[in-house]
């Protein structure tokens, strides 16, 4: 299969959906002729023009409110918030409007839109440009949330999200944009709510989200050299969560570590760990463990930033502790 970068895979999904469905429009800051500050919409303006690849002012709340209103009137906006940190600015149209429309109107309305934003550390961008705030979106009933971890999933999850009748928030780790991998040509859909088994193993399960999947696979390689075979599972979407696949893995390995790049306290790892503790208790030989980011703002300094999020070495160490327990 041909390979694409994660960034190219997202662009291919957007282009494919825009060709298929004329109601799909892109909105965001510098996404038009500029092609996105991370080149994440490159080429789309040339093909689809200013009427469908729409630059907005630096007005996240107002512009996303417009996207929500437009989604109720026949359009399917893909709205980009440049940095995940800036979702603080779109909270009202996201949380109070889009997420609640279906429920408040007993299904009379929905907001079929995608909010795409970035996350993650590693670029020395500091506390206001490095957060991983996906757990916030997960906590709001009515929102679906996906964290693509591979180029193929980026394409497939974007296509599914755009076709979904609900608001879907997609968090893309900027450090994955250059990751290359095989991507199916033509239509490729990854349903929301289906986890992927990335690597089979017998000694422990590592449930990893977003970029943590790559770290977990690195850790698995190291651990294999030390005689430990771990299973790596990527939920791909956190809402809905494919709990069944996670539980099935725990039934095989009897030990589980949950790894997430967001802050540990009340985070996505905590939620998945709690679900597994409730649903897979009878098959567990050790307490569910989690590994997530430190509960601190993301520092800018090179000596500090790498300490904040889990990496392959810390995942491997946590697995050792898990199997020893």
């Amino acid at each position: 299969m041909r390979t694409l970068s994660y960034r190219e895979a997202v662009i291919e999904a957007l282009a494919g959906e825009m060709r298929r469905d004329p109601s799909v429009v892109l909105m965001g800051e510098d996404i038009g002729a500029a092609g996105g500050v991370f080149r994440q919409t490159a080429g789309l303006f040339d093909e689809f023009g200013a009427a469908r690849v729409i630059d907005t002012p630096i007005s996240e709340a107002g512009a996303f409110g417009i996207a929500v209103g437009a989604s109720m009137c026949g359009l399917r906006p893909v709205f980009e918030v440049m940095f995940g940190d800036f979702i603080t600015l779109v909270m009202d149209p996201l949380v109070n409007q889009a997420a609640k429309l279906s429920y408040m109107s007993a299904g009379g309305f929905s907001a079929p839109l995608v909010l795409r934003t970035t996350m993650g550390v590693g670029s020395n961008l500091g506390p206001q440009h490095s957060q991983s705030l996906h757990a916030w979106a997960c906590h709001v009933p009515g929102l679906k949330v996906a964290l693509p971890a591979s180029p193929a999933d980026a394409k497939g999850l974007f296509a599914s999200a755009i076709r979904d009748p609900n608001p879907v928030v997609i968090f893309e780790d900027r450090m994955l944009y250059t990751l290359r991998g095989p991507v199916p040509e033509g239509e490729h859909l990854v349903p929301l709510g289906s986890a992927a088994l990335r690597r089979a193993g017998r000694d422990a399960t590592v449930v990893a989200t977003g970029r943590m999947v790559a770290h977990a696979l690195d850790a698995a390689d190291r651990l294999a050299g030390e005689g430990l075979e771990i299973e790596v599972i990527d939920p791909r979407s956190l809402v809905p969560l494919d709990l069944e696949a996670l539980v099935a893995s725990v039934r095989r390995t009897h030990r589980v570590l949950v790894v997430d790049g967001g802050a540990r306290r009340y985070g996505a790892a905590a939620e998945i760990a709690a679900e597994l503790a409730e649903s897979a208790f009878d098959w567990l030989d050790a307490p569910v463990r989690r590994l997530a980011a430190e509960d601190v703002p993301i520092p800018i300094s090179r000596t500090l930033e790498p300490l904040v999020q889990p990496d392959a070495a810390r995942i491997a160490a946590a697995v050792h502790a898990l199997v020893a327990g």
């Binding site: 709340a61 107002g62 996303f64 409110g65 417009i66 996207a67 929500v68 209103g69 437009a70 989604s71 109720m72 009137c73 026949g74 359009l75 009202d92 149209p93 109070n96 409007q97 429309l101 309305f109």
Partner: peptide
């Protein structure tokens, strides 16, 4: 009606979105 919001300012954003679609 595209929505009826108790968050008063949000109405303007939603209506502008409706206007965009119109």
């Amino acid at each position: 009606f595209v929505s009826t919001s108790g968050i008063v300012g949000s109405v303007v954003g939603l209506a502008a979105g409706a206007a965009f679609a119109c």
